[in-house]
């Protein structure tokens, strides 16, 4: 199975990188962008074939290492 983990900053956590991207988009002439938040995507290639087992494993990876839950949220996307 393949897993895609999306790690994003929690609401209320200041995102200076997102702000910088927002400014750069503004200076390129892109209008109507209200906010930009930057996150990261981590792709995993897993030996598991069972979706529930894979999800449980990736969930644990997120809690232990992939995300810092003090400042970040994560979302897991699985595909065959």
């Amino acid at each position: 199975m393949k897993a895609k983990v999306h790690v994003t900053l929690k609401n209320g956590v200041l995102d200076p990188q997102g702000k910088a991207i927002h400014n750069a988009l503004g200076s390129l002439g892109f209008e109507g962008v209200d906010e930009v938040r930057q996150g990261k995507v981590i792709e995993l290639d897993l030996a598991d074939t069972d979706e529930a087992a894979a999800r449980a494993k990736v969930e644990e990876m997120c809690k232990k290492l992939l995300a810092n839950t003090v400042i970040e949220n994560y979302a897991i996307e699985l595909s065959a």
Binding site: V13, L14, P16, Q17, A20, N68, V70, I71
Partner: peptide, 17 residues
């Protein structure tokens, strides 16, 4: 120490980047 949970909070990218 913050990442290990021995201290609370987190250190983020400097505000001026």
């Amino acid at each position: 120490l913050c990442e290990s949970g021995l201290l609370p909070g987190a250190l983020m990218r400097n505000a001026a980047l």
